[in-house]
Amino acid sequence: MHPAFSVIFLTTLIGAGQGLFLALFSAQAYTELNLLPSMSDTNFFGLGSLFALILMMGGLIASVFHLGHPERAWRSATKWRTSWLSREVIALPFMMLMITIYGVMHWFGLDGIIYSSATGNNFSYSLLVAGSIGAIAAFILFVCTGMIYACIKFLQEWATPFTIINYALFGTASGFTLAAAFSSFYDAADMTKFFTVWAIILTVLVLLTRLASLFRNSRIKHKSSMQSAIGIRHPQIQQKAMGMQGGSYNTREYFHGKTKAFLKSVKYIFMVLVFPIPVILLAMGLDTADSGLLVAAFVVQYAGLIFERWYFFAQANHPQNLYYQTV
């Protein structure tokens, strides 16, 4: 496929936004469970939510560039029964709404205790209502975004649970890394540690799942072939003319137009940028809670994700390409 930057930014930005929100949510949950000391600065969750929202907005704006007719974008919510894209279009603003509610509750202190446990833990509205609905929405959104790609069964590189798992884990990992960097600006070492440790765990986890998907994709046997594409049984078939020489939508949308070597180097770049460097920076930041290191970890990881997503598109081999061998 031809990687579209609008879609690359959409998926990476909203992923990080969702991840950041999940990080905030879990931090709040930990504190309310007394597993973490509570955050002294009450703006933390509000501002954090704003960041998450900004990331989601950024994604949304990027996605608009992908549309031929953004003014009609509202229509895209109508087919949620069948279309994962439509579902995403619903889930995304819903997610954003929940983040907004969550953030507003924190920022304006509109919170209250909904339930106090016997052990003396106080659970707030923001956590149990806005936060948990938001968290569920985040997972739904991950599934929707992932399924947009995973449901196209003949894009075999995409049609796997890994697509959803990786989307979710990449988003969460980058969100936690961002949360670590963000929290380091506050006087909350424990919380920063919490985010950092989880960021490392999630990054390692997604390294495993991404490696697994790379391994899987390297061994894909494509079901379609020249033979099935034109219905001729002969081992030697070569296209000699595509029917047009100046190219068409089909030669632009589905080909990355880059060399194999380029593709390979993108893979190595993202493997380095997304995993080891952030992990090292995070580990280094673990003790020092040095904002510089943690911000760097996020920036590097996010940059890596752009490469990762580029590669995700470029690696996918659309069967239509059998008909358009750019001859």
Binding site: M1, L67, Y249
Partner: peptide
Amino acid sequence: CIGCKYCSWACP
């Protein structure tokens, strides 16, 4: 049509 091109991805 909003021109999202998704349908074309879904056409093998």
